[in-house]
Amino acid sequence: MTTKEIKNPLINFLLHLGDDALILGHRNSEWCGHGPVLEQDIALTNIALDQIGQARNFYQYAAKLISETSVEKITEDSIAYLRDGWDFKNCLLTELPNGHWGQTVLKQFLIAAFQYYLYQVLEKNSEEQLSAIATKSLKEISYHLRWSSEWVIRLGDGTDDSKQKMLDALEIVWPYTNELTNFTDYEIEILGDTYKSIKDNWIEKVSAVLLEAGLEIPSTFYSHTGGKQGNHTEHLGYILTEMQFLQRAYPNSEW
């Protein structure tokens, strides 16, 4: 299936939110069983699990809306497993390889801070179903933000080695952060004027945490964007190849 021709901004927004959650959840889940401390292995797996759950909520709603005008049978799984990379609308930041554990946590923090403010706005949206999913997700995201902020601070303000590792990580991920608050037409269509506060809140929160962590934001960088419109890094193709393998190899099966 493809969702490339869909013009409905709500559906596109739902796909974008679901894709962000799914791809970030996929990356976080790669740590399962390989974390630095058992407790934190559980914490990050738990976050991945929340994100897969969020993706399902957005996809189920999107599937319902798409099905209203489609002859194909659309489900959460056809959205996740049967689209190609160009249909995916996740931010590039979510698909970047994990790097070291601190880099994963930093990436998770930058996105959670954004989602925290975005979902507060979505919670008040007049679109009832969207608002309900946002309310449910916000509880989880508040925890993701708290957990990841604490670790960014701990690692930034830990040893000289950990600080350097976090600075290196920041160099890698920071160029992908502008895309978060660089709103597309379909987002603005749904968010209306409310989107404007999100960027300021995000910058304020991120600056405060990075300051406490003793990490300086890179001064020069070139912003990479395009994910929200389906223009991705090379990494997404490999994520999908792996994720979609069974559905592609054994089509039309129940699992």
Partner: peptide, 8 residues
Amino acid sequence: ISRAPSLK
């Protein structure tokens, strides 16, 4: 995990 055949 990365290859599970459905989201459920």
